[in-house]
């Protein structure tokens, strides 16, 4: 058994890779004020996963990931179309689209795939504890399938962000200027969200889609409280995600609970820490700005 197929290493590595990919893409989402799209996309991919399974009889593989990722893009497209009709606000459009796609996915699975490995609980909650059981051999190395998928997606995400860093940055902070400069913020937005849905599909085996949302939203939000520069925000967010995986894994072993859930929950202390640090610094700065006489008289 090669090192990568060792259960502990496989679980930890998969968690870290999924967390890094989620935090990387999530940074732009949180900054743009679209965090709930992560929730919408990650629910909607169940529809794509169910369809891909019906078409090919497989739930994992490049074609399945791409196909299921399309359903995340479909969800974004439907949300935008509904919101553009101006009959619904965009929050209501989000809340109308993703439960519907998710429901269709659940019904399809219930009706056609009753006794297959695929069920909505797995998609929702993931089974990271079992990722080492399902392996493929690549270039003589035995690699867990979920590990391979999340490593590939992280690589693709990182290449995308590096290649289009400036376009992404501008589309996030000033879409108007990006449009004026001919950078097509809409296209960047869709490319970013299709990668996000692809990563969600790759992650569903491991942490489950709802817990994937945690990795997308919480580390960037914590980093947002600590950093001023986009590049450092992304770096800190990815670090938090990486640190959460072993932390959560340890807690899960200790308490005998869901590994994916514990890994996701392990991001919470970082958010609390960032929040407290920020409050502490603000208070100190506030005190420093107060002339001493005033503070003396107010305390008297």
């Amino acid at each position: 058994m090669s090192g990568l197929a060792n259960p502990t290493i496989a679980i930890l590595l998969t968690g870290m890779l999924v967390g890094m990919a989620g935090a990387l893409l999530g940074s732009f989402l949180v900054l743009r004020g679209n965090s709930m799209l992560a929730d919408a996309i990650s629910h909607s991919i169940l529809f794509g996963i169910a369809l891909a399974w019906l078409a090919t009889g497989e739930t994992s593989g490049a074609v399945q990931i791409a196909g299921a990722a399309l359903s995340g893009v479909l969800a974004v497209f439907l949300i935008e179309t509904l919101a553009r009709s101006r009959r619904l606000r965009d929050d209501a459009a989000i809340g109308l689209v993703f439960p519907a796609l998710f429901s269709i996915g659940v019904v399809l699975i219930n009706v056609f795939a009753r006794d297959v490995h695929l069920d909505e609980h797995t998609v929702l909650l993931g089974e990271i504890g079992f990722v080492w059981l399902d392996t493929v051999t690549v270039a003589g190395l035995v690699v867990p399938r979920a590990l391979l998928a999340s490593a590939t997606l992280l690589l693709v995400d990182a290449l995308f962000v590096l290649a289009f860093y400036n376009a992404l940055k501008l589309a996030t902070f000033d879409p108007g200027l990006a449009r004026a400069l001919g950078l097509a913020p809409g296209l960047v937005f869709y490319a970013h969200l299709s990668l996000l849905s692809g990563t969600a599909v790759a992650a569903f085996d491991a942490v489950g889609v709802v817990l994937f949302v945690t990795f997308v939203v919480v580390p960037p939000a914590a980093a947002y409280l600590l950093c001023r520069r986009l590049s450092s925000l992304i770096a800190v967010a990815m670090l938090i995600a990486v640190a959460s995986a072993p932390l959560g894994y340890g807690a899960a072993l200790w308490l005998d609970v869901s590994v994916g859930g514990a890994m996701a929950l392990a991001t919470a202390p970082f958010l609390v820490g960032a929040f407290s640090w920020r409050r502490w610094r603000e208070r100190r700065r506030y005190r420093a700005a107060q002339p001493p006489a005033v503070s003396a008289s107010s305390s008297a």
Partner: peptide, 24 residues
């Protein structure tokens, strides 16, 4: 942090806690 981030944070952390307790 804006409302969307707040909503997504509490949603995901709440659910993660729920999953942990459920398996407990």
């Amino acid at each position: 942090l804006k409302t969307d981030a707040g909503l997504a944070i509490m949603l995901s952390l709440g659910f993660a806690l729920g999953v942990v307790l459920l398996t407990w």
